[in-house]
Amino acid sequence: MTAEVTRKRTRLDRKFDKLRDAEEAGLLKRSKMNRSLRKMLGNRLAVIGVVVFLIIFLACLLAPVISSYDPQMTDLTQMTKPPSMQHLFGTDKLGRDVFTRTLYGGRLSMLIGLGSALGAAFIGVLLGCYAGYKGGLLDQVILRLSEVFMSFPQLILVIMLGSIFGRGLWNLVIIFIITGWGAVYRQARAKMLSLREEEYVQSMKAFGLNDFVIAYKHMLPNAIGPVVVNLTLSTAMFILDEAAMSFLGLGVPPEVATWGNILNAAQDLYVMQNYWWMWLPVGVVVSLFVISINCIGDGLRDSTDPTQQG
């Protein structure tokens, strides 16, 4: 009964054949690498994302090494010069080097994005871990409160708080944390709710361990995974929010170079049409950076999800 089954050979068939050949030849080594990492490396978009992210991140980090200009220094002999070898992205209306400003602006934009995401994650996890474990009134109150914050359209809430707090870099970070903790709280809480029924938790409870020790020391490491993955996506979101806020002239004070502020300078139509180098390269860099973070975030989510094969 060895009837040949004829069907179209697919990509997967070829992959399996290759694997079988390698196995028969004894070439297949037992992979020592972490399974998640392996899955991540198999994801082309995520790998490209990591590369692009690293390039932009390192360039901004090493800004003083890469560029010899001062981001704030005005040079009135070099106003509105198009891109050249001296000025890669040209110069703006005050003769400042746009490339240098983009690098230094990136530092602040990344700081705001990552700082806000970390702050929001910290508060969300801190509250969500304990409240999710204990449940009861405290949990209900915080849950309702997070619902209140989450029912505001993100940008409206950010702008509204901005108008109360005033402009400033740290004000912006605080505002982003206020708007962002709710989502993390709900995520951490949901995970804790399912962990609460696990046997190890029940047994620790029976041993009479302190609630804080159970929640933060023993359960938190098992609940933190999705939060960390989401950290990437919320960093991207906050970078976009900062750019939008500063673009509208409501974010960081205009003299500070951030990605949003550089773009804000190009708001008038004359600049937009005639001095494309003042806004187009910065916009592309911001877009690339956010795309790369989102690719990494998606890749992380897929590779850490145990229900997905790979």
């Binding site: 991207a236 773009l263 190009a266 187009l280 916009g283 973070i293 989102n294």
Partner: peptide, 27 residues
């Protein structure tokens, strides 16, 4: 389309708007 979708959620709306103004309205 997956890549396009990724780009779509990542580009700042105002930047996309600016590009469209320059291309379709000004130029």
């Amino acid at each position: 389309l997956t890549v396009a979708g990724m780009i779509g959620v990542s580009i700042p709306q105002f930047f996309f708007g600016m590009v469209c103004i320059v291309v379709f309205a000004l130029n």
